[in-house]
Amino acid sequence: MNALKKLGLFGVLIRVLIYGVRFVLALMAVSLFFILLYRFMPVEQTTLMALRGLQGEEVRQEWVSLDDISPNLVRAVIASEDVKFCKHIGFDFGEMKAAWEDYQNGEPLRGASTISQQTAKNAFLWPGRGPVRKVVEAAYTLPMEVLYPKRRIMEIYLNVAEWGDGLFGAEAAAQERFGKSAKDLTQREAALLATVLPSPNKWRVDPPGPYVRRRSGTVRARMRSVSQNGLDTCVFKD
């Protein structure tokens, strides 16, 4: 390091690069540990669940196998959140580009996260935004896509997603909102649950407001397209 001091600014940049590489390698090691851990184990506690508990909410989650979740809900979240789920490797670069172009044209910056990215965020990371969180999210998303079948990613996603009022996971949401198991959700109920995912503590399904009703109707139409065009085959055939 003494040699780097003699190089002035260039030495500082080299030092920053060295520490940056070390940070990335350490981050990758930690992410790989947890990704391997949850390849088969249920994810029954997340940072967001802990936060909701600290905020005084009663957190309810019941982990269930994907076999015990209605295919209607799988198709609904693909239709609503990530229609290219079966085709991408964790990132939808086309959607990212479109979101950036819309922002440059004066529209509000919208999310372009895939179900895989949301799974990484919900299962492994802390809530919030910012460049550091996005870098860490990517460090989990890519190896998760390599090591997990899509079916497992969907299973984790549907078991840790927040549905408001301290409800986490499809089973808790289905029981509380509709009084039935997640495996018995109808197309309408599944579309309603998928519709409120972006803002589960603001939008309601019991009863749904005008926006949720309209949006859920669109989701139901897209669900038929998902099924007819085989956009869900990676979930049901893995």
Rank of each mutant, 00 (worst) to 15 (best):
D82R: 00
D82I: 06
D82M: 01
V83L: 09
V83N: 04
V83E: 11
K84Q: 04
K84F: 11
K84A: 02
K84V: 05
F85V: 14
C86E: 07
C86L: 05
C86Q: 06
C86R: 02
K87N: 06
K87V: 09
K87H: 12
K87L: 11
K87G: 02
H88E: 01
I89G: 09
I89K: 09
G90Q: 11
F91L: 10
F91P: 03
F91A: 00
F91T: 06
D92G: 03
D92T: 12
F93Q: 07
F93E: 08
F93R: 06
G94Q: 07
G94S: 01
G94A: 01
G94T: 05
E95G: 11
E95N: 12
M96L: 15
K97N: 13
K97C: 12
K97Q: 15
A98F: 14
A98M: 13
A98Y: 15
A98L: 11
A98D: 14
A99K: 10
A99H: 12
A99W: 15
W100N: 02
W100L: 07
W100H: 05
E101M: 13
D102R: 15
D102C: 00
D102K: 14
Y103G: 03
Y103M: 13
Q104L: 15
N105K: 14
N105V: 09
N105C: 07
G106Q: 09
G106P: 10
E107A: 07
E107P: 07
E107R: 15
P108K: 08
P108N: 06
P108I: 13
L109A: 13
L109N: 08
L109T: 14
L109W: 15
L109P: 14
R110A: 12
R110L: 14
R110C: 09
R110P: 15
G111H: 11
G111A: 04
G111T: 11
S113Y: 11
S113W: 14
S113M: 09
T114C: 03
T114A: 03
T114L: 04
I115T: 05
I115R: 01
S116N: 03
Q117E: 09
Q117I: 07
Q118H: 07
Q118A: 00
Q118L: 03
Q118T: 06
T119Y: 10
T119N: 00
A120L: 03
A120Q: 03
A120S: 04
A120V: 08
A120D: 05
K121F: 13
N122M: 03
N122C: 02
N122S: 08
A123H: 12
F124L: 01
F124W: 07
F124T: 01
F124I: 03
F124A: 00
F124G: 00
L125Q: 03
W126A: 06
W126G: 01
W126T: 10
P127K: 13
P127Y: 14
G128A: 01
G128L: 01
G128E: 02
G128K: 02
G128P: 02
R129S: 10
R129C: 02
R129E: 10
R129P: 09
G130I: 08
G130A: 08
G130F: 11
G130H: 07
G130T: 12
G130D: 07
G130V: 10
P131W: 10
P131F: 05
P131H: 04
P131L: 04
V132T: 10
V132W: 11
V132M: 03
R133M: 03
R133T: 06
K134V: 08
K134E: 05
K134T: 07
K134Y: 09
K134I: 08
K134F: 11
